[in-house]
Design a protein around this nucleic acid. Structure first.
Length: 277
DNA sequence: ATGGCCATCGCGGATGGA
């Protein structure tokens, strides 16, 4: 089973790339089962549900005009969908939570192995606020939002042991996630305060999937459009896939897929892909 | 170098992103 997150920076512009990428994964023999998308930048009536349906995906979406917007795509039906964070009234469309069947990859010549316990996976796809700059109103909103996300994950974990929280977190874990850690010391995405909130989420019983596996040096998921930042690999790792304790034994691989960043009109983010047994 | 790019809205240039 493969899960992925991708901030597409306008689904209107990037839809062909998303469809091509999904098709390429399937052709390689390991289709993406669940994909969380961020920054749709479209109202709900513009969501390309038919195109995804034709590609074999169920979809749930939660958009707004111009900014933000998130979606979940799944090869199996999505149920029990929740929009945004209960307890935090918010005009901004940033979170989509849903349940999918937890499907196990059949062993060669063997039967599909159902996992012990419940056979569902709770998926939280999220576009965390940017925060602009420490001390700004937007930073204060980010801190409030992170507190509400913490409460939501805690609540959901209590009833869904198999849980994944993935998306554009807009927070680096530590200096290894930053191309210029000295130049970005206590800058947005790198402040101690943001990182404390990220660690508080991890402390609920989650694991940074990427760090469970050996990675290339300077392993980033976002690169500025300016200054040839991608070619020079001047980036940040701010897109994450966090998995619960119960899922950790099923994790087989996790990596950033930089290929879509080579497209002619790429998103500034690359997808992050987790493979589960 | 107080920037450089990209998307949106909408038709100029501001806003937001990260």
């Amino acid at each position: 089973m493969k899960l992925a997150t991708w901030n597409v920076n306008s689904l209107t512009v990037r839809l062909p790339q998303v469809l091509d990428w999904l098709a390429a994964q399937a052709e390689a023999g390991a289709p993406i089962d669940v994909l969380a998308l961020q920054e749709l930048k479209m109202t709900d009536d513009k969501f390309p549900a038919q195109a995804f349906s034709d590609a074999g995906y169920h979809a749930q979406w939660f958009g707004q005009k111009t900014y933000n917007g998130v979606a979940l795509l799944s090869r199996q039906p999505l149920t029990a969908t929740v929009k945004n964070l209960p307890g935090l009234p918010d005009e901004q469309a940033r979170v989509l939570t849903a349940t999918v069947p937890l499907t196990r990859t059949p062993a060669v010549g063997g039967d599909t192995q159902p996992p012990a316990g419940d056979a569902t996976l709770r998926v939280i796809g999220a576009y965390f606020p940017n925060g602009q700059a420490p001390g700004s109103d937007k930073f204060a909103y980010k801190m409030q939002w992170l507190q509400a996300m913490h409460a939501w994950v805690q609540q959901e974990l209590a009833t869904h042991p198999h849980l994944v929280l993935m998306g554009d977190f807009n927070i680096t874990f530590d200096d290894a996630d930053v191309w210029d850690p000295d130049g970005m010391r206590e800058a947005i995405h790198c402040t101690t305060e943001e990182r404390r909130h990220l660690q508080a989420l991890v402390a609920l019983g989650l694991h940074d999937s990427v760090r469970l596996f050996p990675q290339p040096e300077k392993n980033y998921s976002w690169w500025d459009y300016r200054e040839f930042a991608f070619r020079r690999n001047r980036g940040l790792r701010i897109d994450h896939v966090l998995i619960s304790d119960a899922l950790k034994p099923l994790a087989q691989a996790c990596a950033v897929d930089k290929l879509p960043r080579n497209n002619e009109r790429p998103s500034d983010h690359a997808p992050v892909v987790l493979t589960l047994a």
